[in-house]
């Protein structure tokens, strides 16, 4: 999974996809890669994992070997029109951009294609060796991955259509791009992950790199009888809670395909500490 140029990290909200995306970037940078990390939906989630306040559309050096940006729709649209579609500078673009902004709320696929465009442009360019995307939640991501096809269906001809077809090819090319789904061993994230896998079925939108299972609680070595025999008090309460959580998680883990597992990090570390700790797990794997 570490050799694709474009890695899209998704999952249900709250499972730690930004942390996993940041940890993959740290891992790649340690191996000498020039990395671009892209926050697709929000500027802050990813930023905090690199210990900065926020991100913009201008690449910001957040760590040795890592630049990070957040998608800004207006800037992304500008880049899309001028650089990708080569709309002439002389065109009344300011007004057109305004119109387009309104349009993205209405026409299917347009908003997604503009947001999805940036990671793909950077995959086509040679500035970076790795493009790691902190993507929207998995349910929404599918419509982003389908957007090039949606657009090709509503736009009969022209530059937008050609560009959409090129995007679709790159996303589906397993030599270049892959999807990493982050989940955790609880009911809703597991159910949603399985639904997403079924939903994508055999559409071949993108190659699935794997399912990362985050915040796994491993059972204690002391068995349940021993824990039950502890005298009442915090030592017992904490051990019982831990064992029961581990057991509950086990039920959901059994429903998931095998994949890299990342441990629950105790003490709700800061986002920066979490990303650093997780990146060490990638070094080990």
């Amino acid at each position: 999974m570490f050799d694709r140029k474009l890695v899209i990290v998704s999952g249900k909200g709250g499972v730690g996809k930004s942390a996993v995306a940041a940890s993959l970037a740290l891992h790649a940078a340690r191996r000498g890669k020039r990395v671009l990390c892209i926050g697709m939906t929000d500027a802050i989630g990813l930023a905090t994992h690199f210990g900065v306040q926020t991100l913009t559309y201008e690449p910001r050096r957040v760590h040795a070997g890592i630049d990070a940006i957040a998608i800004d729709r207006v800037a992304a649209l500008d880049e899309y029109l001028h650089i990708q579609l080569r709309v002439p500078k002389a065109a009344p673009l300011r007004q057109f951009t305004k119109f387009f902004e309104e349009l993205v709320d209405t026409a299917p696929g347009i908003r997604e294609i503009i947001t999805m465009g940036k990671p793909l442009f950077e995959t086509w360019r040679t500035t970076y060796d790795r493009v790691i995307v902190d993507a929207p939640p998995i349910g929404q991501l599918i419509s982003y991955l389908r957007a090039p096809i949606t657009v090709a269906n509503v736009v009969p001809t022209g530059a937008v259509r050609d560009e959409a077809m090129r995007m679709r090819m790159t996303l589906a090319d397993s030599a270049q791009a892959g999807l990493l789904i982050v989940t955790m061993p609880e009911e809703l994230p597991v159910v949603e992950t399985i639904e997403a896998l079924n939903d994508m079925g055999d559409e071949a939108l993108i190659d699935l790199l794997g399912i990362v299972i985050n915040r796994v609680i491993y059972p204690l070595n002391a068995d349940d009888d021993a824990v039950g025999g502890l005298e009442d008090g915090p030592l017992k309460d904490a051990a019982v809670l831990h064992q029961q959580l581990a057991e509950e998680q086990h039920r959901w883990l059994e429903l998931l395909p095998d994949g890299p597992r990342l441990p629950h990090l105790f003490g709700l570390l800061t986002p920066g500490e979490i990303a650093a700790a997780l990146s060490e797990r990638w070094d080990e794997l």
């Binding site: 204690l220 002391a222 021993a226 025999g229 915090p234 030592l235 051990a239 831990h242 105790f266 003490g267």
Partner: peptide, 26 residues
């Protein structure tokens, strides 16, 4: 964290105490 009362190996006792420290940090 106190020591577990009885019947635990030193390793188990250490694990149980670490476990409480972990959850207490959380």
């Amino acid at each position: 964290p106190g020591m577990p009362s009885n019947g635990f190996t030193p390793e188990q006792a250490a694990e149980l105490r670490d476990n409480l420290r972990n959850w207490a940090a959380e």
